[in-house]
Design a protein around this nucleic acid. Structure first.
Length: 221
DNA sequence: TTCCGGGTCC
DNA sequence: GGACCCGGAA
């Protein structure tokens, strides 16, 4: 096994030892995962929770409930999550995809490859959102890559070229790890936690569980 | 009061 | 690279 692959396994072990299981994704139904995946685009989870609560209170946290809303009503409910106009449009496009497949179950029954393609065909669903749905709503062994993943790997010196594509980074993890959705889900959640608590855009290295300091901990940007 | 962080599309 | 948006930090 390559050095980088071993290091990715070690990184998981360290984070898991420090933080324990994260229990992602926090949602009661696959549809709720899908909605959350769209709402959390470029948005702190706290604000997504507010929007989800409002949808739930309005009885719109199901395809049948949400489809009854006008676009304007949907916009107002999800306002706390930001980008509310485009996200309302995206959710309605996702609803149409679900309807075309006769419901959430029918959609999620597609093969991983086909499901990913269908999700990516929805305007406003890109690779990270699609993969979050594949992993956390459909339970497929697909590794989710985000800004945090890139930042952490780069600072740890595990990303040779800083411009590595989404797919390249995803392959890195999928080659290094056993193809286990549970593991992938935990790993992504642990990276998010590390990024929020320590490995922020402006690093807060004090108390980082990866101490002794990582190779890049002295960089300021 | 301004600034920052965070996916996707154009 | 800019536009889309909010809440919380500075």
């Amino acid at each position: 096994m390559e050095a980088t692959e071993e290091k990715l396994l070690e990184l998981y072990e360290k984070l898991h030892a420090a933080y324990g299981p994260q229990g992602w994704w926090p949602a009661e139904t696959p549809f709720e995962v899908m909605v959350g995946a769209v709402l959390t685009q470029a948005t702190a989870w706290r604000n997504v929770e507010r929007a989800i609560e409002r949808l739930k209170a309005a009885g719109a946290l199901s395809p049948e409930g949400m489809v009854r809303l006008s676009e304007e009503e949907l916009e107002q409910l999800i306002r706390p999550a930001g980008f509310f106009r485009q996200k309302a449009r995206r959710l309605r496009a996702l609803l149409r995809l679900i309807e075309r497949h006769g419901g959430v179950e029918g959609l999620l029954a597609l093969s991983t490859e086909r499901l990913r393609a269908e999700l990516l065909s929805v305007p406003g669903i890109g690779p990270e959102t699609a993969d979050s749905i594949l992993l956390y709503a459909a339970g497929r062994p697909v590794f989710v890559v985000d800004t945090y993943t890139r930042r952490i790997l780069h600072r740890l010196g595990l990303l040779r070229d800083e411009k590595a594509s989404y797919e390249e980074m995803q392959e890195l993890f999928e080659r290094a790890l056993p193809r286990d959705p549970e593991l992938f889900g935990e790993y992504h959640a642990l990276l998010v936690r590390l990024a929020k608590e320590h490995c922020r855009a402006k690093p807060r290295c004090a108390g980082c569980p990866l101490a002794p300091p990582c190779a890049r901990s002295t960089e300021s940007a």
